[in-house]
Design a protein around this nucleic acid. Structure first.
Lengths: 210, 210
DNA sequence: CCTACCGATCGGTAGG
DNA sequence: CCTACCGATCGGTAGG
């Protein structure tokens, strides 16, 4: 009984640590995160924090995993009930931009920021990040392919490149909002993403109209 | 004479420091840069390095300034001789993607990475970054506006949003190349940017064709 | 999960 | 531009 409670409490503490770690890392990066400041924010000792993970590297990997889970919960889960293909893609764009515009972490979309932090920095964190990003990319490509098969997107659609274009627009939301002071960054991004999924001429694409 | 030579030598050393600092910061971020490792890379003492700037903050600001100057030299200068408006915009996209695809810094486009590093991190570095980014954004908006006046872009064009869309696609080049292992990231981005500047229907936009 | 500690490195300074 | 040094903080460990 006491043993069980200990395990449950420890898991709870672990989740609490990861939540605060993700918040801090979204602002100062996974590499800028330090055990000492994390412990202070949690009102714990450094040893108490690091004991849950073994090393800072394992803490970074667990934090990244936590952030990926939040992304999945907030972006994929609301869209999953929709019919696959274009309807689900439209729902994904809505949930994605709601997530990016809220935002879930004080530093904005965690995976987008991590993409730039680790694009030239080798190591296990980057390797894990690549796995998460490729999985999401694959999901987008798959949904686009279904939409093409269903006749909801042109047969000439290049699913890889359309997915990459959607990711580019989505990633830019936080910098646009924070550095340019544009409160409508997420809404504008969503409009552009939806237009990319439509068949309108560029004259109808929100990039071009006020 | 000796005095003059000293000043010239010191300025030369300062440039050498900034060049190496920008290379290092493009990989590990301006915040991850440390005076000690920079000194080691330069085969200098820490005091010798920091003496040129006074503090790490001043070193960061000077490094950012250096990177912005490189961007201007490599992206703006080749395009400036072109006629303003659409011709110059097309030249900018070409130079920009050549710069992003080469790349000038081992860690990829410096300003794009810095945008994500400092979008939620207040301070003088962020303030300076905002100045550089807004200047470039203003340049793009101005060229787009000229293109609209000349009839080369639709009158309904929203210059602000088109500029932001171009920036989003450009920024994503390094992560796409490095994390997805796509060697054509810069070329594909350029095609998409040129399509955004064209009047084709989306069916002709490279996102949609193989 | 804590205290107490380790060697290494941090940004920065004194003095030359 | 160097050596030699400062206090603070880094990631991590021993022992409980």
């Amino acid at each position: 009984m006491a043993g069980r409670r200990s395990v449950a409490v420890a898991l709870d503490t672990r989740r609490r640590i990861l939540s605060v770690a993700a918040d801090m890392a979204s602002v100062e990066g996974l590499e800028g995160l330090t055990v000492g400041r994390l412990a202070t924010a949690l009102e714990m000792s450094k040893a108490g924090v690091i004991g849950h993970f073994g090393s800072k590297l394992e803490l970074q990997l667990a934090t990244l995993d936590h952030a990926a889970e939040v992304f999945r919960t907030e972006v994929w889960s609301p869209a999953a009930p929709q019919q696959e293909g274009l309807p689900r893609l439209v729902a994904i764009c809505g949930a994605w931009m709601e997530y990016a515009g809220r935002p879930a972490f004080p530093g904005g979309c965690f995976l987008a920021a991590a993409s730039f932090e680790f694009d030239s920095r080798p190591g296990p964190v980057r390797d894990a990040l690549i796995t998460y990003l490729r999985r999401w990319h694959g999901t987008l490509v798959r949904e686009i392919s279904v939409a093409v098969s269903a006749g909801d997107l042109p047969e000439t659609t290049n699913a890889e490149r359309l997915a990459s274009a959607l990711e580019a627009v989505a990633a830019r939301v936080t910098p646009t909002r924070e550095l340019y002071g544009d409160p409508h960054a997420a809404a504008h991004a969503e409009e552009l993403m939806l237009a990319m999924l439509g068949r309108q001429g560029l004259g109808d694409v929100p990039v071009l109209v006020p």
